[in-house]
Nucleic acid binder design. Structure first.
Lengths: 355, 355
DNA sequence: CTGTTAGCGCATTCAC
DNA sequence: GTGAATGCGCTAACAG
């Protein structure tokens, strides 16, 4: 229980006033070489620790924060990210924030483009980005970099950018994990299907592709590459999808597991259920309301979840720290844990908000 | 982005001074009926939200907190709980705390008794309890209740007590989940073993018993009660354990999965590995260093984890709130999520500290 | 360049 | 019973 050393203490030890210490801590210049040295000396000896909250109350400034993510629907993936952000706003309510959401349609590059453009117009002091379109994001980030506006990524990372932090999942490993979950619960010679949703614009396409690679890689590593089949279904045309999937299963009777590389597992759950297919394990992503129902009803065996609330929470938290401490820090990439959710452990994931 | 309403605002609206509002908020009396009414009226209208941190800095008081848990070893279960507590101390460093750990030997009731006795002597203002011995805990809690000292439970809940909050896991469901994990990855006629560690004093005995019940219940529900076998092993005598386990496996050649109802899975992993047993899945509890190694080496198939850091973190957090707000609130029992950890998702659980 | 000072939201003491 | 005043750790404006 070492006592926290305060700015006043440091000032005293360094033989200067609190004002000068404050200037050093926020490196906003106008400090003599001599004072600087003295203060840095003391700082390195005693290990000063900032107090965000007292700092925040004394700070009269209100920060404008822009949040650029795909349209968030309650009970779905981006809705959970939004929940996490709201939670952080609440937890750091002493930091005065003016948060604005700039939702865009993740399947419409034009919507993304115009959304990003209006962000620049708003001149925010910090930005949270849920990136979908690569070059649009890069363009936005270049602009932000030029204006020294800090930003963080949630869900995924875009190369060629320099965020304060990022919160994402190792999608490749997700794919491998999916492979493992299906394989261990099936006979040795079983076949497995990758179900991709055919959709113009490609839903979180990069993520799905990585997952697919991991999935195939897993079976390749186990000498079972030939056991992996692949087909697609439509999100919008259930009847057509049903026909297609059932035809696929008839042609591939060895299929014992299906992996849906996005959050649309529930659609296939409905199809399998309607056709009384019992011996196929279904795995998918994200704890959406539909998928929750699928698990509860026993039509989905497992869901992988990437802690979207936590991503949102920490995204805002790290931005706040960046704004208040104002220091040039290295980018920190955080890889979220991958939760495996099945019928038994489902209830407690829903209930407990994890911060 | 509704503006936070402050005490000053409330005072103004109610036509009184901040002092009076404060008296009401902390219900420490000396307020006229009329003022009280007025303030409560305003409060119910605007929904005032406390700010712990500003509250904490203005509060000169230092709180004594006693933490009574089994001896915490880094990298093991109680060590992780301690980590979470330390994390909370750090996160709420503006609240002045004098935290003292009162470790006790969870296999020695006398050590527990003397530890609990010294807590009472210390006259702490709040207590975190990791309960092992039922009546010892009940006695401590009765004493705390009598002195109106708030306390919270981690890991488990003891009946006949009235904590501020508790953070524990549904052990019965853990057992069921273990059953499921083993069953789905084995042939239909496979047999499964409950491995209990025979140890005087019974390691977290209640938890193990609940898990066992859940495990057996799961197989009963699936009409496979007869497929469940049971044996025990010693933590202290590896050679003897090895003999015993291998004999058991010879006598029960149908065994395809083993469930260790505590954190000692790694011991069996070593035995299986040493004897080149490959076709038996091993599942156990808690992300201890030994178990992590077992997963990495492929000798343990899965570990169930009950977020010990999070338990510790929230335990202290809720105590802090209880101390600062000083309101008689209902007990809140929190059931932690049960994480399933396998080789693929292991790395990211270790890395990401989840608050 | 530097020290002083007022003020942030809140708790508490102390006159009235 | 009540309100004014002081201080908590910190920031920033201001006067030197």
């Amino acid at each position: 229980m070492a006592k926290q050393v305060k700015i006043k203490d440091i000032a005293q030890m360094a033989g200067v006033s609190v004002g000068t210490v404050d200037r050093v801590l926020h490196n906003r210049g106008n400090v003599s070489e001599k004072s600087l040295k003295a203060i840095e000396q003391v700082l390195s000896e005693v290990g000063y620790k900032y107090n965000i909250h007292t700092s925040a109350i004394s700070l009269r400034k209100e920060y404008k924060i822009a949040i650029a993510i795909p349209t968030a629907i309650q009970g779905e993936y981006w809705g959970a990210i939004q929940d996490g952000i709201m939670h952080a706003i609440n937890e750091y309510s002493d930091v005065k924030l003016d948060c604005r959401f700039f939702f865009y349609n993740q399947f419409d590059i034009y919507s993304c483009r115009s959304s990003f453009a209006s962000i620049i117009d708003q001149r925010p002091e910090a930005v949270i980005i849920g990136p979908t379109f690569k070059s649009e994001t890069q363009r936005l980030c270049a602009e932000l970099d030029a204006n020294r506006i800090p930003y963080v990524f949630v869900d995924a990372v875009i190369e060629g950018t320099s965020p304060v932090a990022s919160y994402s999942t190792d999608q490749f490993t997700c794919g491998r994990l999916l492979g493992r979950l299906l394989r261990i619960s099936a006979p040795k010679d079983a076949e497995f299907a990758i179900m991709s949703s055919q959709r113009i614009g490609n839903e979180r396409s990069n993520n799905s592709l990585e997952r697919r690679k991991g999935f195939i890689g897993y079976f390749r590593d186990n000498g079972m590459e030939k056991n992996v089949k692949e087909t697609s279904f439509s999100v919008f045309d259930p009847a057509e999808s049903e026909k297609k999937v059932m035809r696929f299963l008839k042609e591939n009777p060895g299929i014992k597991g299906m992996a849906v590389m996005n959050s649309r597992g529930y659609i296939l759950a409905e199809i399998l259920k309607a056709n009384n297919v019992q011996d196929i394990s279904l795995v998918s992503f994200d704890l959406t309301l539909n998928n929750i129902k699928g698990i509860e009803d026993g039509n989905i065996s497992a869901i992988l979840c990437q802690r979207p609330e936590l991503q949102g929470f920490h995204a805002l938290k790290s931005l706040i720290k960046s704004l208040l401490y104002n220091q040039e820090a290295e980018t920190v990439h955080h890889i979220m844990p991958i939760d495996i959710i099945v019928k038994e452990n489902l209830p407690y994931y829903r209930e407990f908000f994890e911060m």
